[in-house]
Simulated scan of single mutants.
Amino acid sequence: MEIYGREEDRAKWAMHYAQVKANISQPKRTHNVTVSGKNKQGKPYSYDYKYADLADIDKAVMDGIKKATDKEGNVTFSYFFDIQTTNTAVAVQTLLVDSSGFTVKTNKIVFQNGKAYDAQATASLISYAKRYSLSGAFGIAADDDNDVQDQKTIYEPRVLTKQELEDYKVYYNGTQANLYDLYQEAKDGIKDAQDWFNESHTPEDAQAVHQIAQLFKKKHSVKQEIKEKQDALDKIQKTVKKDPFEDKKVASKDDPEVDKLF
């Protein structure tokens, strides 16, 4: 959480925030979704839950803001979003602004984005993050309590085959790039590629990166082993004389053929 403004305005901000929150009515959960799949043990599951969407939550908050006014009927509180996007994630923070200018910025809500190249999917994810951020900022229960159900959806990304690794694509600098080639660029010192690997990644991308790193490590180990063997062989060859009897030869002036025998 970040705070901006004069310290003397903090109490005024807190009072206006409390007034807004007290006037917020919990939005109705009019939307329904069915979640199904398989858990880590491979057993199928399915459940329904209801939720309030971003428009419902925004309306509930704005209704509360309109009721918290000063003597002249002016609103004293408002909010807006700070949205950040990267190649792999979206992040949203809600800024709670008082009429005095005192502002509180909530902690980031971050969601991994495996389809950053898809504008519609990214926009939907941003709306999803906004809903969670705004709900948390004003203490709104926008979903059914399905924490227990959510545990069923946790999974570990599968191990990829060698061919899948060679063909694996990621979103890099606005385009899709081959992860294997990107890793090589990072190894070669390309800063943009190195920066990409330092970012957060989806579980699937992280699994692919891990496997490719292991492949490169194994490849380097094999090359190093071959080099060490070759260096050892070269060293041996340098120490071995071409003719082990070179220092035993005796010159014969009379018969060159005899010299060849020694």
Rank of each mutant, 00 (worst) to 15 (best):
D145E: 13
Y49S: 02
V148N: 12
A119M: 11
R29S: 00
F262R: 14
K227D: 13
Q84S: 12
H220G: 06
I24M: 09
V110M: 13
A251S: 15
H201E: 09
T94Q: 07
K248Q: 12
S46V: 13
H201I: 00
P256E: 14
N173W: 01
V148I: 07
K191N: 10
N23D: 08
D58A: 11
S78K: 10
Y49E: 00
F77H: 06
G37W: 00
A52R: 02
H16T: 07
K59R: 14
L160K: 14
K105H: 01
G114L: 04
Y51Q: 08
P44K: 05
M62H: 05
E72T: 11
D143G: 07
Y51P: 06
E2M: 12
F216E: 10
K66D: 09
G64I: 11
I140W: 08
V35Q: 03
Y183N: 07
T175F: 10
K235H: 11
K38T: 12
S36Q: 14
D48N: 15
T86I: 08
L165E: 03
G136V: 04
I154G: 01
G174V: 05
D144G: 02
K108A: 15
H16G: 00
K38L: 08
Y155Q: 11
V159G: 01
K249R: 13
Q26N: 04
N146G: 00
Q214K: 15
E185I: 07
V148K: 12
L95Q: 13
N113Q: 10
G42D: 08
K187T: 00
G139S: 07
Q194F: 04
F138K: 03
